[in-house]
Design a protein around this nucleic acid. Structure first.
Lengths: 204, 204
DNA sequence: GCCGAACTTGACCGACCGTTCAAACGCCGG
DNA sequence: CCGGCGTTTGAACGGTCGGTCAAGTTCGGC
């Protein structure tokens, strides 16, 4: 049967991508070596190049893979919440680095920043980034529209408000993961919710 | 006299920092070689290490130097504008990448993103970044306060509004320099001014 | 069991690049 | 003109990786 090889191959692929994402998160893209990824994955360096054509390809795929995973996890969780207002709150909860104690602080945003820098010069990465980002804004816009349809939110251009909230979270998250002394996770959370409440006309 | 050596030394220092900033802007931090900087500055590679202890130090200094220059240039220009509202508009004009045709698109923001990534792991860079960022927010807050004092703007916590506007611009600028098809310079500009108008209660 | 293909290893190569250094240059005071 | 010091050069060194490869291992199908 041909089911075995593809399955184990895909497993190895994901294992390596996971390992790569973990190493990048910890050491940063610039300081990530193939041997680091191999060690993290518990395999030999040679195997990495057996599954990925080059280091660059591996790292690019790892970045989009990790961000994709994050989006899917959040997406799944939010879909279960009935109230749009609570969906939005949860989205902010999960987006503010270090706000929920059970999650690491760097993790997602640090990778996201590496994506930005790489996307400046790598056309494939640029394309992937745009898709990921538009999907992200889209899901915020969907929440807004759902809330408006349910009467939880006031009127307003959903796409414009989504862009506003997404960009605001990007900008604030940067300060927070940098440990800026004036921008705590709590302050970021408060400001995001305040802007959302003002734009969407709901009470906190 | 001792005036000659310090002067020429400082010139060389700045020349090299300028050259480094230009190379980083063009090729990205990761792809910047000492020999590239030397070539850009029109000197030999050895001289770079004569003026800077190491490549890392050089690049860190170049990043803060360039951002510092940008801030001072903008600061000087804005101080000459009498109306707070016009100051704000000009600040947005100059911050939106590619909005004014006479300025390059990547320049400042691309360097700024490199600062972010590096600051994640380099404590000195982290310290410098926080200072630069706070000074930036501070100058926005000053405009807000001036406008409030002059009756151009409505009431509101100036520091909170400054953080909001600064973060929003960060987040939007990222999309714009990435050439996101849905976030044009014009849209960024419009959204920034709309939020400012809404928060500060003025007409566009 | 045995064959072959897929998978895995780790030693090795070669290029690249940060850094060092000995030598040359040029300018200024004397 | 000369001596010396600050500056500049560019060749050379050495370490670090990305990528290759030949040999070994595993495993499913016959």
């Amino acid at each position: 049967m041909s089911a075995v090889r593809p399955k184990s191959t895909r497993d190895r692929n994901q294992e390596i991508l996971d390992a790569a994402a973990r190493v990048i998160t910890e050491r940063g893209l610039a300081e990530t070596r193939i041997s680091d990824v191999a060690e993290q994955a518990g395999v030999s360096p040679g195997l990495i190049l057996y599954y990925f054509d080059s280091k660059d390809r591996l790292l690019s795929e790892a970045l989009t893979y990790a961000n994709d995973q994050f989006f899917l996890r959040m997406s799944r969780e939010i879909r279960r919440i009935p109230s749009a207002k609570e969906q939005l709150r949860r989205l902010v909860d999960l987006s503010v680095p270090g706000y929920l104690p059970e999650f690491g602080k760097l993790d997602e945003w640090a990778l996201w920043m590496e994506v930005w820098v790489r996307a400046l010069r790598d056309p494939q990465m640029a394309k992937d980034r745009e898709i990921l980002d538009q999907r992200w804004r889209q899901s915020i816009a969907d929440i807004v529209r759902a809330g408006q349809a349910a009467g939880e939110f006031g009127p307003g251009d959903a796409d414009e408000i989504a862009l506003l909230l997404a960009s605001l979270m990007d900008g604030l998250a940067i300060q927070v993961i940098m440990n800026d002394s004036q921008v705590s996770p709590e302050r970021m959370h408060r400001l995001c919710m305040a802007v959302a409440a003002k734009e969407l006309g709901f009470e906190l």
